[in-house]
Design a protein around this nucleic acid. Sequence first.
DNA 1: CCGTGATGTGTACGCTGTCAACATAGTCGG
DNA 2: CCGACTATGTTGACAGCGTACACATCACGG
Lengths: 214, 214
Amino acid sequence: MSEARAYHHGNLREALLEAGLQLTRAGGPSALVLRDVTRRVGVSPNAAYRHFADRAGLLQAVVERVQQEMTALMHPDGTPDGEDPAARARAQLRAVGLGYIDFALREPGWFELAFAAPELGRAPGPGPGSGYDHAPGPPLPAPLARLVDALDGLVAAGVLRPEERPGAEWPCWSAVHGFALLALHGPLRGLPAEELRRSAERTVDAVVRGVTGG
Amino acid sequence: MSEARAYHHGNLREALLEAGLQLTRAGGPSALVLRDVTRRVGVSPNAAYRHFADRAGLLQAVVERVQQEMTALMHPDGTPDGEDPAARARAQLRAVGLGYIDFALREPGWFELAFAAPELGRAPGPGPGSGYDHAPGPPLPAPLARLVDALDGLVAAGVLRPEERPGAEWPCWSAVHGFALLALHGPLRGLPAEELRRSAERTVDAVVRGVTGG
DNA sequence: CCGTGATGTGTACGCTGTCAACATAGTCGG
DNA sequence: CCGACTATGTTGACAGCGTACACATCACGG
């Protein structure tokens, strides 16, 4: 039914997205070269313009694909076991942070595309409260949604005072996002995986401690 | 003496750097378009190749200029006053972090150029200890040097246990670097300056608490 | 005064994204 | 069943980019 099928090529749009995913996976956003994508699909460069406004449009669509993909990749991961609900809530937040960093290190191209590409109208923009509104229009990117949940969990577990909840996303996100970038392009680039992991844990632990009021 | 003076143009190299600084200040690394730079100086595109290997070479040189500039911009700022040396050391670290963020927000183009441009052989790469060696070859970029000092200060003041000192740079840098990027291109972009400032302080405070063992 | 090296110019090539005009292939109304 | 219409893909062109190569020009040292 909605199986969009062959005109000349047999759904090109999908093929272009697929090619875009492959290219950006290996080389980040800058590897999405329009002529490359079309070449790889075996079609003329301008064919892309029947399905996307321009290069930026294609890029944007690939970004959305990656963000969906990521939702799957960050499997539920189960709430960590343990009796103490406070400890469990903390562990949850920790897991979210490490998950973010893991994704960035495992899929650097996609990470950069989805979360570190400048000039990309990403981000709904926070509401008046300076914390994410809990019922905004566009669905949050998966990792951010999980962060929001984890922080709410901290409040529920009594670890985080409710008046400290709004805006608590930013220190957390800042730390893991910054770490990912330092590890990918910054001074930590090329460090052995084990050391990197320890540094990541330390960073996450620090910010978790910091946010939950020491 | 070293006053490189007129051949045809009267030191071009300097003029190119100057133009590069202007362009990147307004538009970040991607605004450094070789043909733009030379046009602005009133010279043919290829003239640049007498002074730089290629576009990347010019870019690299501009980066170094910016990093020098930054040393001046981050004026000593004086050690904060106060009796308690522990509190003073903490305040020092806090000031370094906020200084980093301030610079990023005040000079987004230069910040991105000097600290957030991918594929730029920035970063000496940490030594075996996973903390910066205290006597490496190339001089650290100014803000990082100040960070190192602040952390050493924490140890001296007895706030940070010496065995926790190595690698303490990364949580700190991660947080402020990440925050700067979220504020420039991420979800915090466009937030009123005052709110931004509060979020920045919260982020810095969190990581300072987190690093200094809660 | 002339050669020699440093410096800037001119021309050209291949690459990019994108526009306008055209061709084709499916769909649908009569 | 046939012609019109629309969706889709191709061709050719343009401007702009970084850059390689050959040439012109200037300053200076013998």
